[in-house]
Design a protein around this nucleic acid. Structure first.
Length: 262
DNA sequence: ATGGTCGATCGTCGA
């Protein structure tokens, strides 16, 4: 089972890129973030024509997450518990293929360290921890793919000195991400590409559109696939489809994917 | 250096 996650930065602006990438890489399940449209504006039909069931949590202009699956889809959940006043479309969960629960996650960017949105981001991690504590008690494997907007360590940052205490790398944000690992999740990329052995500059998933970030490889690793212990035991392969970021009219993020046995 | 480049939407916000 191949599961891929991609912050697409508008599914309507990027539909051709999405279809070409899916035809080339043939994932069973795709987790999308920043689809940036209402559910009724989502381009379902061309994706259904490729053989995928399409599940959407939409929002006008901002955010938006989706799950595309060639496998059966059951038990869909469309929001993250813990704040009934939060209407932002950032979380979608479903069971695919009967034995694997997946979630498409778009953690708040945080805007600026200390801003109101920054604290919303930190609270969002607390809500994720509380919800995942529950989900990890279920029988099926659980894979959470998405844009976490956190570079977990300095190995995930092209210039750690420049980035010191900036958004996405503050100790508080990293603690939020790490609290998920402490629940028992594994970071799929780091299981197969450990920090001390890998070419960490090849593992970035986001590059700023501005100042030619991609051509200079000024990147961050902020998109992740977290695997429950059961899912971790099935891990066979993982990678980042960096070539997608080099194409015409790209998203500022590259997809991250993993293959689980069975 | 407080810029720069995108997308949604159409002046400006969010990233």
């Amino acid at each position: 089972m191949k599961i891929a996650s991609w912050n697409i930065n508008s599914v309507r602006a990027r539909l051709d890129n999405l279809i070409a990438w899916m035809q080339e890489t043939d994932p069973d399940v795709v987790l999308l973030q920043e689809t940036k449209c209402l559910a009724e504006q989502f381009p379902r039909e061309p994706l259904e024509n490729l053989g995928y069931t399409v599940v959407v949590k939409g929002q006008k202009s901002y955010n938006g997450v989706a799950i595309l699956s060639k496998l059966t889809v059951e038990d869909v959940r469309t929001s993250l518990p813990g704040d009934e006043n939060d209407v932002e479309a950032r979380y979608l969960e479903a069971v695919v293929g009967g034995n694997t629960r997946v979630a498409s996650l778009y953690v708040p960017n945080g805007q600026e360290v200390g801003a109101e949105k920054y604290f919303y981001k930190l609270r969002f991690f607390e809500r994720l921890s509380a919800h995942f504590k529950d989900v990890l008690s279920y029988k099926e494997s659980f894979v959470v793919g998405g844009d976490y907007n956190v570079a977990p360590t300095d190995y995930d940052v092209y210039d750690p000195i420049l980035f010191k205490n900036r958004l996405s790398v503050t100790p508080q944000e990293r603690a939020g991400f790490h609290s998920l690992l402490n629940l028992g999740f594994q970071d799929a990329i780091r299981v197969l590409y450990p920090e001390d052995k890998a070419d960490n500059t090849a593992l970035y998933t986001w590059w700023d559109y501005r100042q030619a970030g991609f051509s200079k490889n000024h990147g961050l690793r902020i998109d992740h696939l977290l695997l429950s212990p059961q899912a971790g035991g099935r891990l066979f392969e993982a990678g980042i489809d960096r070539f997608v970021r080099a194409q015409v009219k790209p998203s500022d993020h590259a997809p991250v994917w993993c293959v689980l046995k069975q």
